[in-house]
Simulated scan of single mutants.
Amino acid sequence: MTIPTVSFEFFPPKSLEGSFRLWDCVNTLAPLDPNFVSVTYGAGGTTRQLTHEAVTTLHKATGLNVAAHLTCVNATKAETLEIAQSYIDAGVSEVVALRGDAPKGSHAFVAHPQGFDSSVALIEALASLDAFNIRVGAYPEKHPEATDQAADIAYLKRKIDAGATSAITQFFFEAETFFRFRDACIKEGIDAPIIPGILPIENWGGTQRFAQQCGTHIPQVVQDAFENAMRDGTTELLATAIATELCDDLLQGGVEQLHFYTLNRPELTRDVCHALGVTPKVRLQNVA
């Protein structure tokens, strides 16, 4: 079996307890030698400063290749580019450029009057700085706001043409979902790498809510399996098995990179990586 290249997504801490959890997550997963790690941006830009602090601290303290999420929400163009310049000054050369989710309580994205009105505009501005490797999001199943998947794919091509170098997908539950999407992207002339996003199921209720929000289909067999596992107290074993099988199917289909949404809870992700042959290679030196 091909041993994949892996990457991990974290979110910035909002409390002292959250800070300890983030560092525990980093200490657990960094030895697996990720290609990069990313730090998310809260809905409505609510964690802008926290994200900046987490990115720069991780970069400085660990030497990991850290990708900062940047969005178009609740910021002027000047403010967004000022943040981008601060990353350049800190030696951070990776960004994940996203339109961003609307603030809580809002039903749709509304651009700031002096802000970027789309992810394409943001990508073009970041690309003009000639300082970043720019990754973007992709939806293997139709984005809730898109008219159809063809429109999704056409928009992804616009993002790649604007300067993005790769895409990371939203999570999904069946390998065929990714393969159909990958093939459709190739057919439309997208030749940038598309990295499947994997969500090990830490919390079944939370995963169901995430899936509903982003239009991810949950197969009936997965629903039934988790209902049984919750009764039997075996949800962790089931979650590890489901994620490992999904990853193995993807690798068998030619995938070489996997991106894990860790939710700052590293154990399941670590166990899945170990099952795939991704074993510790490095040890952190500078984490306090």
Rank of each mutant, 00 (worst) to 15 (best):
I3E: 09
S7M: 03
S7R: 00
F11N: 08
P12K: 14
P13L: 12
E17H: 14
G18T: 13
G18Q: 14
G18A: 10
W23D: 09
W23L: 15
C25Q: 07
N27T: 14
T28P: 06
P31I: 10
D33W: 04
P34E: 04
V39R: 11
V39F: 12
V39T: 12
A43H: 11
A43Q: 13
G44I: 14
R48S: 14
T51V: 11
H52F: 15
E53S: 15
A54K: 11
H59T: 15
T62R: 13
L64F: 12
V66K: 12
A68W: 04
L70M: 13
L70F: 04
T76S: 15
A78N: 03
E79M: 09
E82R: 10
Q85A: 06
Q85T: 12
I88A: 07
I88V: 15
I88P: 06
I88M: 09
L98Q: 05
L98F: 10
L98K: 02
D101F: 07
G105Y: 03
F109Y: 15
A111Q: 08
G115M: 04
D117H: 07
S118D: 05
L122F: 03
I123G: 03
A127W: 02
S128E: 09
D130G: 00
Y139D: 10
Y139I: 11
Y139C: 14
Y139L: 08
K142R: 15
H143S: 10
E145P: 09
A146M: 13
D148Q: 11
Y155K: 12
L156V: 12
A167L: 06
A167Q: 08
I168F: 13
I168W: 08
F173R: 01
E174V: 13
E176V: 07
T177K: 10
F181G: 15
F181K: 12
D183P: 03
D183C: 05
A184Y: 09
G189C: 11
I190E: 14
I190Q: 12
P196F: 06
G197D: 05
G197I: 00
G197F: 02
L199W: 03
I201D: 00
G205Y: 04
G205C: 00
R209L: 07
A211P: 01
Q212V: 04
C214L: 13
H217W: 00
P219I: 03
P219F: 08
D224A: 09
E227I: 02
N228Y: 01
R231T: 04
D232G: 01
T234V: 06
T234K: 07
T235W: 04
E236S: 11
L238E: 08
C247P: 02
D248Y: 04
L251P: 02
Q252Y: 00
Q252L: 04
E256V: 03
E256F: 01
H259M: 01
A275K: 08
L276H: 06
L276A: 06
R283H: 05
R283W: 02
Q285K: 13
Q285H: 07
N286F: 07
